[in-house]
């Protein structure tokens, strides 16, 4: 789905997108604080945020949880899916509730997905289940180290 849509955004929308990729203050009226920083009204900010979400320019607004800090686990996995079986295998993989996201990539290993489970042990259980269902090897790439993630998309 290489969509070429470029959203119509004005300067305030861009300022909101840039500011709200950073932390929201934990106070009673957090949007009023951010609105004042940006020089717009609280109601205007909330309406624009609602529109950005409705139009899919932001996919969600809220807490980013770290499943590992909660005792859960993530694992990047990859499979080399024969092209003629791609759709069938995609349906089998996506049907697992533990598959958080899944991407098609240009490579012999053409299906890349992330498993998110509440315990480390469940990662192998789910990956083994996918191998049994599809007859294809699931390569597992657990992270050994994550480097500081400060990236923000410039709107």
């Amino acid at each position: 789905m290489r969509r070429e849509v470029r959203a119509e955004l004005d300067a305030f929308d861009r300022a909101i997108l840039n500011r709200l990729q950073d932390d929201l203050p934990l106070v009673s009226r957090p949007f009023a604080v951010v609105a004042e920083e940006l020089g717009i009204g609280e109601r205007d900010l909330l309406e624009r945020l609602e529109r950005l979400r409705a139009e899919g320019i932001i996919t969600r607004f809220g807490p980013f949880f770290d499943a590992e800090a909660m005792g859960g686990a993530f694992c990047l996995c990859a499979m080399a899916v024969p092209p003629e079986r791609f759709d069938e295998v995609m349906i089998q993989v996506n049907a697992q509730p533990e598959v958080a996201h899944n991407y098609e990539r240009d490579h012999r290993l053409n299906m890349w997905f992330v498993l998110a489970t509440e315990t480390r042990e469940e990662i192998d259980t789910v990956a083994d289940r996918i191998e049994a269902q599809t007859g294809l090897r699931v390569f597992r790439f657990p992270k050994e180290r994550e480097f500081f993630i400060g990236f923000r998309v410039a709107a």
């Binding site: 789905m1 969509r3 849509v5 470029r6 959203a7 997108l17 709200l20 990729q21 950073d22 932390d23 929201l24 934990l26 945020l49 950005l52 139009e55 899919g56 320019i57 932001i58 996919t59 969600r60 607004f61 809220g62 807490p63 980013f64 949880f65 770290d66 800090a69 909660m70 998309v153 709107a155």
Partner: peptide, 15 residues
Amino acid sequence: GIIRRIAAAPNHYAL
């Protein structure tokens, strides 16, 4: 560290 931040998740494609 259970909550990394409270923020917007932008859609890279839409941007």
